[in-house]
Structures are given as C-alpha cells and as structure tokens.
Amino acid sequence: MRDILRLLLPPLVWLASFSAIYGLHGVGCALRWPEISHQEVSLFRFALLSAWFAAILMQVALLFALHRDRFKAGSAFMQWTSLATGWVGLVAVLWTLYPVAVITACGAYG
C-alpha cells in the first residue's frame, strides 16, 4: 500500500494545490479582493503568487524526499515510477498554474 501511495502522492498534491488555488481565485473574485491593494501591488495577486510558489516548493520537496533512503520504494521499478510521477507533479504545478503570473485576475467587470 505504501508503494501505491508513494506513486500517487505527488499528483495528488498537485490536484490539491490546483483545486485550492482555483478556489482561492474564485473566492477572491467573488469577494472583490483585487480592489484591495497596497502600494500599487495587488494583495490578491500576491496571495495567488505565494500560493503558487508554495505549491512548487512542495513538489520539489517531494522529489527530494523520493531520493532519500527513508522514503525509497522497495523495488527499482516502483522507485523509478514514483520518480516519474514526482516529475509529473512538478511539471503539472508549473504548467497548469502559470496563469496566476500572467492573466488579469478577474477581468474588468469581475
């Protein structure tokens, strides 16, 4: 079971952070957070970016952990596959959440 969990953990963490950031964005737009800013920096954008960096850090940490002896899988095959899904998690977090850095948060009529 640990082998299966190790395999599923990185993409699961991606799914959780993806949903959480989508949720944060939805709540922010619904409650008109983009209008709150501090010295030209939108606090909402700052919150989204921080959440994104936290999600990236988590994936990197998972990848490192997979290399540590304590968390290694029992067989070479499972170790390789776990590393592969670890990279999937990292790429997914970068790819799917990059819009937080480039897109207008809620639109002119948000």
């Binding site: 599923l8 993409p11 699961l12 991606w14 799914l15 993806f18 949903s19 950031i21 989508y22 964005h25 939805g26 737009c29 999937v88 997914a92 790819w95 799917t96 959440l97 990059y98 819009p99 937080v100 897109i103 207008t104 948060a105 809620c106 639109g107 948000g110």
Partner: peptide, 26 residues
Amino acid sequence: FLSFGLWVHHMFTTGIPLMGLAFFSA
C-alpha cells in the same frame, strides 16, 4: 490525476473569470 483538473473546460462559457479558465485550459 490530470483528468480531475479539467472539469471546468466544459464550463468555459459560463462566465468564470479568465484566469480560472486559464488554469483549466492549461
């Protein structure tokens, strides 16, 4: 796993703000 992060692409015309759509488009 990725397939669980796609559901909003059936809702691109429901008026969700573009950044939200962008996550799901990506």
